[in-house]
């Protein structure tokens, strides 16, 4: 399939394939894929279990440029086995992160201090349910590899999480996603640890009715996450909108980019714990209880408001830092 970069900018991020997202997010013509479909590096485990194979194992990874920044991209394909991660696609993801960090270290050797306008960036476009059960143990291990690298990224490699594809960022990918410096989402983005079906199965329908679409959106959806501060930028649904948000932030000093971090320090532990305590104190049983607490008098209307109206009127949890 031929991709025209200019067309990709206006394309719906939600409907785009992993490869379209990867190509469109970086500067025109700069994306170089690692282990592309031609390499036919398929999962050895899905084959044995009789599943259909994809030559890229459901993930597109590589490096391009945004202005002068080498930009490492991981783009997950939710349409293939739920975007879930196993041995091969997991290694593609975690090793791409490792190469981003290595590029930072090499640049530091070369320049002494890495110039703000040249520092490597990392973008992960999430579309995954987490661990691929067919190769669950390998999937578990790759998540820890990602977490160690995201830890190492701090104050070095700006780390952008993009949420707005079909599956969301669920399971262990949910917490990998939240470990970034900046979380960007469109209205379709969803972030969670335990998906609706699993909650219903494990705890019961009185805890979570997985057939209630509205409940799913207001619990895990981007609007709620934006109000509660987990999503930093809620943007329109085009690849170009995601790209522009990153372009806007890319040249800033690392310190400024990491101001929106959601975790990774004793201070943020205390900030997050305050919200946990608040939820217990007001016996929050629905996200609307917290939306209201943070000053929204119209919680029933918020999910339905047109995007522009929502953005201009919504009240968000004030961040402590």
């Amino acid at each position: 399939m031929r991709m025209i970069w200019e067309d990709l900018q206006d394309k719906s991020f939600y409907q785009a394939t992993a490869r379209e997202r990867a190509f469109g997010l970086v500067d025109k013509g700069t994306f170089k894929e690692f282990l592309g479909p031609r390499d036919k590096m398929v999962s050895p485990h899905l084959l044995v279990l009789g599943e259909a194979l994809e030559f890229d194992d459901g993930i597109v990874v590589g490096v391009g440029k945004i202005k002068k920044h080498p930009t490492f991209v991981v783009s997950q394909e939710g349409k293939y086995v739920g975007g879930a991660l196993g041995e091969v696609n997991g290694a593609k993801m975690s090793y791409t992160l490792r190469l981003a960090l290595e590029t930072y270290e090499k640049m530091k050797e070369k320049y002494g201090e890495v110039p703000d306008e040249k520092k490597p960036l990392c973008i992960v476009s999430y579309d995954s349910g987490g661990v691929r059960l067919h190769e669950a143990n390998a999937g578990l291990l790759m998540h820890s590899e990602c977490m160690e690298l995201f830890y190492e990224f701090q104050n070095k490699v700006p780390n952008f999480s993009l949420c707005g594809s079909t599956i969301g960022a669920y399971g262990a990918q949910g917490f990998v996603c939240m470990s970034a410096d900046v979380v960007i989402a469109n209205d379709y983005g969803r972030i969670g640890l335990t998906g609706p079906d699993v909650i219903q199965q494990e705890v019961g329908k009185d805890e979570f009715d997985a057939s209630d679409r509205a409940l799913i959106w207001r619990t895990m959806g981007a609007r709620s996450k934006y109000i509660l501060g987990d999503v930093d930028y809620l943007i329109k649904d085009t690849i170009g909108a995601f790209r522009n948000q990153i372009v806007d932030l890319a040249d800033l000093p690392m310190k400024k980019i990491s101001r929106s971090r959601h975790l990774g320090s004793p201070k943020l532990v205390e900030e997050n714990l305050e919200v946990v305590k608040l939820a217990a104190e007001i016996k929050a049983n629905d996200s609307k209880d917290l939306w209201k607490y943070y000053g929204n008098d119209n919680p029933d209307e918020l999910p339905e408001l047109p995007y522009d109206k929502f953005i201009s009127t919504v009240k968000r949890r004030p961040r402590a830092i």
């Binding site: 830890y151 917490f175 939240m178 972030i191 969670g192 640890l193 975790l263 943020l268 997050n272 919200v275």
Partner: peptide
């Protein structure tokens, strides 16, 4: 695996411990 955990962010809890 609870609803309030998903609202508030079980994700951030587990990641915070890992970073610590």
């Amino acid at each position: 695996p609870g609803k309030v955990e998903e609202i508030v962010g079980m994700t951030k809890g587990t990641a915070s411990y890992q970073f610590a």
